[in-house]
Nucleic acid binder design. Structure first.
Length: 253
DNA sequence: AAACAGGCTGACA
DNA sequence: TGTCAGCCTGTT
């Protein structure tokens, strides 16, 4: 395989790991083709894959993504990178790396805030501190099983959250995209809508009604746990893949 | 121009 | 344990 990058570290074995070229996608897809909905989604978005993202960058990005939207998330990540990241060059063009936890930790509050992060600035800094000082250790957390790892990401020590800004949805995203937990099934508003529409039986009547009519369309913590568990039970070990295809289906209709 | 956007925290029942 | 308001900010 041939590839080009700005760094020697990003060689072909990195690319192989990042894009999961070691896995047989057809086998994975066969395991989640449990109904016509997934069949249609897989046909429509055939080739869509999970990738193995860098762990700190992934968690930090999803902390920033809270209560926001894709264009804005992109703007926040790019701004933070250009202000606090290392300058890079690739094929003559300038780029910036995503900043290290240390860089975010050292950042002046007002400067961090001026990246347009809003109240997420505080969360990003606290997560950076926890990663930098070892309060949270990715190696140890991601070596646990799914349930324990999710508990670890959202846990409290002496009543204080270890990772402020990391709730159930953010934790599931980190576990799926950078923690090697393929059974994680993150539920954002799009996925919740898709479940209500295509899998009403898995959702339950009251929640379905709420998403349909009520102005309050955000899942409560208990609703989230219950729903994500039933989706994991239904799709099994590769539920995260099912979620990705369902998400795409939900957004393209 | 009020609502909404790829939720979470802190306070309270 | 489960609810609920409030929250930065950009966009529609």
């Amino acid at each position: 395989m041939r590839c080009a990058s700005s760094s020697d570290r990003l060689d072909s074995s990195f690319v192989r790991n990042y894009f999961r070229l070691d896995e047989d996608l057809t086998v994975v897809l066969a395991s989640i083709m449990k109904d016509d909905v997934e069949r249609e989604a897989i046909q429509k978005f055939y080739g869509l894959k999970l990738v193995r993202q860098e762990r700190w960058e992934c968690l930090a990005s999803f902390v920033l993504a809270t209560n926001s939207n894709i264009p804005r998330i992109r703007a926040m990540v790019e701004k933070v990178s250009s202000v606090f990241g290392e300058p890079l060059e690739f094929e003559g063009l300038p780029y910036h790396s995503f900043p290290s936890p240390e860089a975010i930790r050292r950042a002046k509050a007002s400067k961090l805030r001026s990246c347009g992060l809003g109240y997420r600035a505080r969360f990003l800094r606290q997560v950076a501190e926890a990663v930098d000082d070892g309060s949270i250790d990715f190696d140890s957390v991601y070596s646990m099983g799914y349930e324990d790892a999710r508990r670890a990401l959202t846990s409290k020590i002496y009543g204080e959250k270890v990772l402020l800004g990391v709730g159930p949805k953010v934790a599931d995203c980190a576990l799926l995209f950078s923690g090697g937990k393929d059974e994680a099934f993150p539920i954002d508003v799009w996925v919740a809508r898709a479940i209500a529409r295509f899998y009403p039986a898995l959702m339950g009547r009251s929640l379905r009604k709420k998403l349909g009519s009520s102005a309050q369309k955000k899942l409560t913590a208990p609703e989230y746990s219950k729903l994500s568990k039933s989706m994991r039970d239904y799709f099994g070990a590769n539920a995260g893949y099912a979620q990705q295809y369902l998400y795409m289906l939900s957004r393209n209709r």
